[in-house]
Structure formats: C-alpha cells, structure tokens
Simulated scan of single mutants.
Amino acid sequence: MRHLRWLWIVAALAAPEAARAGSTTYDAVLTTDVADVTAGGVKPGANVLANLDLTAVWKGGDGWEAHGYVLGDFGGGLSQRRVGDIQGVDNIDAVPAWRLFEAYVKKTYAGGHLISSFGLMNLNGVFDVQKYARLFLNSSHGIGPEFAQTGPSIFPISGLGTMTSWIIDDRTTFKFGLFDGVPGDPAHPKAFVSLKLSQKEGANYIVEYKRTFAGGYFKLDHWGYTAAYPRLDGQGVSRGNAGTYGQLGFTLAGQPDDAAHAIKGWLRLGQANGALNAVDSYRGLGVYGPGWAKAGGDQMGFAIAQVRFSAPYRQQTPGQARYETDYELSYSRPVTPAITLQPDVQLVVHPGARPDVKTASVFMLRSVVDFAAL
C-alpha cells in the first residue's frame, strides 16, 4: 500500500498551491460471482470469483482532481479452465492479485470545454464505454474484444497514459488518448504496480468522435499501436496493429430521460487487423429496460456478442469454427440501497472456436455490496 501513498503525495505536490484545498471521498465495493458451467465448455463445474474496488477521489479548487484506485481480484480462471471462451463470460475474471489500478490527476479548464488527465489510467473508463450495455456481465459488453485482445490499459492491469477531451458543444465531443503500449510487466502479472516506457514496446493511441441526440448517442473511434507485432502466418513482424469501432445507442420506448422506465438498445461493430490478431471483427447488440418489481429499480435485458476469428488464426488449427457467439439474459435488482443481486444466464456457442469444445451453458449469481451506502 505504500506505493499508493507515495503516488498520492506526488499528485498533491503537482497541483498548484491554490488548488490543494478540497475534499476527498472514499468508497469500497465488493463484487462476488458464483458461476456454474452446467453443460459443455472445457470442464463443467462451479467457480467463485470476487473483486474488491477501493477508490478515493480528491476534488480541489480551480478544476483540479486526483483519483486513486486499488483493485483486489480473487478466484479467476472461469473462462480459461471451465468455459474455454475467448470473450470472457465474467467481466471480473482475472489472475488473483492486488494491483494499483489508477493514480492520476485531472484538470478541467475554465468553461468546462477542455479536460486533461495524466497518470496511471484505465483506458476503458474513458474510451469504448458502452453506456447502454452496463447491465451485462460478459466482458465484450464492457470493451470490444477486437480491441481488448491487443492488451490495452484496461482491467485488470493499467499503464501510464494521458487523455484530453474537447467538448465542442452539448452534443459533440472529441477525445484523444495516448497510453503505454504494454501496460504492467507481462512476466509478473501479479505485480502491485509496474511502470515502464520503452521505444520497443511503443504506444497505444486512440481518438474518438461522439455525437449525442435525443434518446441516444453515436461514437466512432480509431485505435492503433506504434510497435511491430508478430504475424500469425509466421512471416516475421508487421506494423499496423490498429482497428476501428462504432457504437450506436438509442431509446426504443418511453421517455429518453426516464432512466427507470425507458427501454434502451445499442449496437456496436468493430474490426482489427486479422494478420496480427485472432479476432478480426466483432458485433454486439442488446436491449434492456425496467423489470417487474413493484418497488422499481430493477432492470432486465438480453444481449448478443459475436467475434469472428481471422483466417490466419483458424489455419493454425484445422476444424476451427469461424465465430464464437454469446447469448446473455440478465436481471438486476437492488435488495437494499447498498446491496444488489443479479442472476445471469449465458449460452456460448463454439467457445474459443475449438472443435473439441461443446456449447457451454453458464449460470451466474452476482452480488454487489457498496460499503459507502451501508
């Protein structure tokens, strides 16, 4: 924990004297998943996974902020050992460890039209945020797998980065981000924190255009890496590890601003360089809305996530399927202001595209405890 203490000291010293006076809020959220692969997959059976988020946010004067986030992961291995899928049926599935996930400073300039951040950052906290897909537990509905497979600065290992948002008006925003090309230390995935920048590892850049409209939004992003990567066909290395994705969110029924009763839908399409990556394209879609509880606050929905495997990747193993498709039905209900329960069912067709792995049926029960609300 001493790493977090020193980073907080550096962040405070970096802010101007007039900005240091402010307030700090803390939170702790425990997420626990009981998952059971009832049929198919690599090895049917049950797993228990847990994730503890410890966060602190300091807000000072003159638009300055500092953010700290320590992440604890427990359990893990559900996709690798039981399901065999490439997308990740559980978005908290990670190698067990304690990690410093975020430690960065943020500045909002006068007028609020320009925002800049620098430090240890989660790229997915700013880019590829699928606003209308937050209900679902499959990792593809958190960040597109065609991008996630390249190892950007996202859960559970982040890296140094900087991000700037230019808010042109109340409907149009441009964002630019530049991050470490290889976050953390691949040789030591359980390290609490590992910061290293090198020309060989290069950088990961991403740009985003966002336009909002009544009841929805549209996003178009392009990302890429400056380093060269091994080709899947064995023909040396190549640059051009890049991709593009688009998101469309919309309101299907109800008042757009009535989050408790409106029915929302979304579509996400993405592509990546298939010569360098296993997945060359992705498509996801879904719909969610209010549940049937009289007290309200509950949500339910259905989503589909499908990846297409590139030809060079499929040529490595004869008989591989071209697609992996995940169907998900989820229901979330707050039991108290601090506790939420969420049963979730997923059906994974062609897990990992492997011909020896049958369609997997996965049942999960998630519980979320927000200690700040107790």
Rank of each mutant, 00 (worst) to 15 (best):
L4R: 15
R5L: 14
L7Q: 10
L7A: 03
V10G: 15
A15S: 14
P16D: 00
A18G: 13
A19W: 11
A21M: 09
G22D: 13
D27C: 06
D27R: 14
A39G: 12
V42C: 01
G45K: 03
V48W: 11
T55H: 02
A56L: 06
A56K: 02
W58P: 00
V70N: 05
G72A: 09
G72Q: 10
V83P: 14
G88T: 08
P96I: 01
L100R: 01
E102C: 03
A103V: 07
Y104H: 12
V105K: 04
K107I: 03
T108R: 08
G112E: 08
L114H: 09
F118M: 11
M121N: 00
M121P: 02
G125R: 08
V126C: 00
V129M: 05
Y132K: 15
S139R: 08
I143D: 01
F147G: 06
I154W: 00
T162W: 02
T162Q: 04
I167Y: 00
F176A: 15
L178K: 05
S194A: 12
K200D: 13
A203T: 13
V207C: 02
T212I: 01
D221Y: 07
H222Y: 12
A228P: 08
V237Y: 12
S238L: 14
R239K: 15
G240E: 11
G249W: 12
L252H: 08
D258H: 07
A260M: 12
K264C: 04
W266A: 06
G274V: 04
A275T: 07
A278T: 07
A278C: 05
D280V: 06
Y288N: 15
P290A: 08
M300I: 12
M300T: 13
S310I: 02
T317N: 10
D326G: 01
E328H: 00
S332L: 07
R333E: 13
P337E: 09
A338W: 14
I339A: 04
T340C: 11
Q342W: 10
P343N: 04
H350W: 07
P351F: 06
V357R: 06
V362E: 05
L365D: 08
R366Q: 14
D370S: 13
A373F: 08
